[in-house]
């Protein structure tokens, strides 16, 4: 292992230890397991949860809602951004809608969604409404930043549209898509859990969070929060890896002089 990697890992370990210490100190100062449970009791509770099949059912159900919400946002956001880029009228038509989606409080959307949808569908709808503006705005910005001189090149040399998208436009859009997805996944997990807390679908991590709170199982609440953070981070890392690989295929530094 390279010395720089060892130093990096060591630094990460020290940062993690400092935060763990602050948590333990908080628990010690408050002195009440119901308000701030200790890291150890949270870890024990998490380990117990990991041994039940229900835990995986809740995780799978919530993951499914985040996945569907983000994917639908990605497809609809991508297509509508392309339409807005091409047709000025569509751009102006979508502007107030996107502003509305960006500024409306998430709770207001959840309450409305509760009236319109079944409990299992509410988190997906809320996730879509929260994530869609991020994808739409980023993809549209990326499209507007496309190199105009290359658009002329494509026109003169009559490059096939599929090739234009694959080799000319896609590499220019990847950084914008990457930034959008990084944001979208984090927000997606947060809003799906929030919607699950209010919509209480049958299998849901959000529902379990609420249940733990009702029975004053604070260590279980903390354990669920840790599980959510880990899952959200894993999803983000997976998407980053996928897009980084894609970026690497368009490596700028093939060969050197």
């Amino acid at each position: 292992m390279k010395p720089s990697i060892i130093i990096n890992k060591l630094r990460q370990f020290i940062i993690f230890s400092i935060w763990l210490f602050i948590w333990q100190l908080g628990h010690f100062l408050v002195g009440n397991e119901l308000l701030i449970p200790s890291p150890l009791s949270t870890l024990i509770r998490l380990a117990e949860m990991l041994q039940t099949i229900d835990f995986y059912r809740q995780v799978a159900a919530t993951f499914y809602r985040v996945f569907v919400g983000v994917m639908v946002s990605l497809v609809v956001g991508g297509i509508s951004a392309l339409l807005s880029y091409k047709i000025r009228f569509i751009d102006e038509l979508f502007k107030p809608m996107v502003t509305f989606m960006k500024t409306t409080p998430v709770m207001a959307i959840i309450i409305l969604a509760l009236l319109w949808f079944k409990s299992g569908q509410v988190p997906i709808f809320v996730c879509f409404l929260m994530v869609y503006p991020i994808i739409y705005t980023n993809v549209l910005t990326g499209l507007r930043q496309l190199d105009q001189s290359l658009i002329e090149l494509n026109k003169v040399f009559e490059v096939k549209p599929v090739l234009q998208i694959k080799e000319c436009y896609w590499p220019q859009l990847i950084p914008y898509l990457k930034a959008a997805l990084q944001l979208a996944i984090g927000i997606g997990w947060k809003v799906v859990i929030a919607a699950e807390v209010l919509a209480v679908p049958y299998y849901a991590m959000g529902y379990e969070l609420l249940d733990a709170k009702i029975y004053l199982e604070t260590s279980e609440v903390f354990a669920w929060v840790i599980a959510i953070i880990i899952l959200s981070q894993c999803c983000e890392a997976m998407v980053n890896r996928m897009l980084n690989r894609k970026e690497a295929t368009y490596d700028y530094h093939k060969g050197s002089i």
Partner: peptide, 28 residues
Amino acid sequence: KIAYLFQEDRLMPWLTAEENIAYVLKSK
């Protein structure tokens, strides 16, 4: 059928030298 060498190079930095030339040829 028009070919154009623009005043600027208009090459794509994410492609190699060979790929930049192949890019306009592949459609024809």
